[in-house]
């Protein structure tokens, strides 16, 4: 059993990297989702076009291709990134594009009368978004954001292919050193599942919190 404790430490170190990637990637994805999602609803054509291009581009190619592109091609353009930076950038931009559609859908789902009421009350565009539209749109976004966060977690496995020592990479190391395949892979599958479960638990809690303040507002 003591032989395994060393390998277990290795795998747990990998779990930490995966966690780091998931958290940082999600943060970037969240920012991009709101930027691009609200950008698509902008009244300026240029902003709309930019946001649409970003969304279509990142949704049209897979995370794997984007990651390789960021990691191998950007250095030729003079931008060298560490594997972790490349991973966070690719994951964040990719999932952000999916999130942007969620933001757009949720904002559009808030009734027109809300916008009209804001205009009647002479609120500025910013005030309208910040105090009226977004607080109502947010609860609509959360369930899908939860799925997106889990997709991002699953996407992190791909970074092992650009030599970042995440869970999947460490499992391969253990496999190479021990020749045992079942135990390392079963362990990391379980760990990934535990993390996905943790994400959905946190998101459900968040959803309850966000909807609580809206009691009586929504029918």
């Amino acid at each position: 059993m003591s032989v395994w404790s060393g390998y277990l430490t290795l795998i747990l170190e990998g779990a930490l990297v995966t966690l780091q990637l998931t958290v940082m990637g999600s943060a970037l994805a969240l920012v991009m989702a709101f930027l691009a999602g609200l950008g698509r609803l902008s009244r300026f054509f240029a902003v709309r076009a930019l946001a649409t291009t970003y969304i279509e581009f990142f949704r049209g190619t897979s995370i794997f291709v984007q990651l390789f592109w960021v990691y191998f091609v950007l250095p030729f353009a003079g931008l060298t990134l560490t594997p972790l930076q490349a991973g966070v950038l690719a994951l964040g931009l990719n999932v952000g594009a999916y999130g942007a559609e969620v933001v757009r859908g949720a904002v559009k789902a808030v009734g027109r009368e809300q916008t009209e009421a804001c205009i009647a009350l002479n609120l500025s565009r910013f005030q309208r978004m910040r105090h009226v539209i977004l607080p109502q749109a947010l609860p609509l976004m959360l369930p899908t954001f939860c799925n997106n966060a889990i997709e991002l977690l699953k996407g992190t496995a791909v970074v092992s292919l650009i030599s970042l020592t995440d869970l999947t990479f460490q499992a391969q190391v253990v496999r190479a050193q021990t020749g045992n395949t079942l135990i390392p892979f079963a362990t990391i599958l379980f760990l990934y599942f535990a993390m996905a479960w943790a994400i959905s638990t946190v998101m459900r809690w968040l959803e309850r919190r966000v909807t609580r303040s809206l009691d009586g507002v929504r029918t």
Binding site: K154, A157, V158, A171, A186, Y192, A196
Partner: peptide
Amino acid sequence: RGTPLLVQLYF
């Protein structure tokens, strides 16, 4: 659905 496709492929 909660685990990465890549790991499943390795499996």
